[in-house]
């Protein structure tokens, strides 16, 4: 192959890749528009919504509790090592509380729920796609976005913040165990420290704590990203069972990256506008 020919091939491949990404982004946002429309117009599928809330929320509770518990304990342990040098172990509660509520609770919950429920969404819809069940819905005059995507989207918006609150509370409890049993602090001192950092971090509109905005705002966005991305990959599945596996992997990887990236930008916005 000549150098010119190789250059042309490289150009064509790059152009196709860029166009492919642009098309995928366009399809992603087109799906978001259709989902939002389906959320506010009839017909609704309340039965499917409840089922999805159970699948995303109740079924993910155990791993979220475990994640929060060990994260809180390890946060307390690691920070104690450093803070002991300055005699500042009484501030462990501040560190655990702030880290859990602002960052680790929302992000780790989103990643764990993505690994469990997001993968399940992509696999379930993908399997329906390759076995023509999605086409069957369409032939029966049913919009697959309304029936399959919208209930998952709404359920994720509701359940992700609730799971995050659970993870936050369990993480603070995990930190409490280490503070009391290993560092010799009193539970009262630890909890006051947690409360102080959460209450003293400023308010939005005078009454809403900034940490509440962070702690509950981020999971809503993460829930939307998880449901939309997982359903997007599920619905565009092709290529039989191998395709289902591929879609599931892509859904988890892409959601994880989007969660971490959006977390950075949301934190930046909160620091600029609210703190």
């Amino acid at each position: 192959m000549s150098e010119a020919s190789a250059r042309r091939t490289a150009f064509r491949l790059t152009r196709d890749a860029v166009l492919g990404v642009a098309l995928a982004v366009q399809e992603y946002f087109a799906l978001l528009v259709r989902v939002l429309r389906a959320c506010f117009t009839r017909p609704f599928y309340p039965g499917d919504l409840v089922q999805q809330m159970d699948t995303i929320g109740v079924a993910s509770l155990f791993i979220v509790v475990l994640t929060g518990f060990f994260t809180g304990m390890v946060l307390a342990l690691q920070s104690a090592v450093e803070m002991e040098q300055f005699g500042a172990t009484i501030y462990i509660g501040r560190l655990v509380g702030a880290s859990a509520v602002r960052e680790l609770g929302p992000v780790l919950t989103a990643l764990m729920v993505t690994g469990r429920a997001g993968a399940g969404m992509a696999a379930a819809i993908g399997a329906m796609k390759v076995t023509e069940q999605v086409d069957a819905l369409r032939t029966m005059g049913v919009d697959p976005v309304r029936k399959l995507v919208a209930p998952r989207f709404i359920a994720a918006l509701i359940m992700m913040p609730l799971l995050t609150v659970v993870a936050d509370l369990i993480a603070i409890f995990g930190g409490l165990l280490i503070a009391v049993l290993k560092l010799g602090l009193t539970a009262d001192l630890y909890m006051r420290s947690v409360y102080t950092t959460l209450a003293d971090n400023g308010f939005v509109f005078q009454y809403i704590p900034v940490d509440l905005v962070q702690g509950l705002g981020k999971p809503i966005v993460f829930g939307a990203i998880m449901a939309l991305t997982s359903c997007y990959y599920g619905i565009r599945t092709e290529g039989g069972t191998e395709g289902v596996g591929r879609s599931t992997t892509q859904a988890v990887v892409t959601t994880s990256i989007l969660v971490l990236a959006s977390d950075y930008f949301m934190t930046q916005l909160i620091i600029v506008f609210l703190l």
Binding site: A127, M128, T131, E132, Q133, D135, A136, T139
Partner: peptide, 13 residues
């Protein structure tokens, strides 16, 4: 106005 029978039946699992 139409009913479709798919090759793999396409029943909802």
């Amino acid at each position: 106005r139409m009913g479709m029978v798919f090759q793999g039946s396409a029943l909802f699992d």
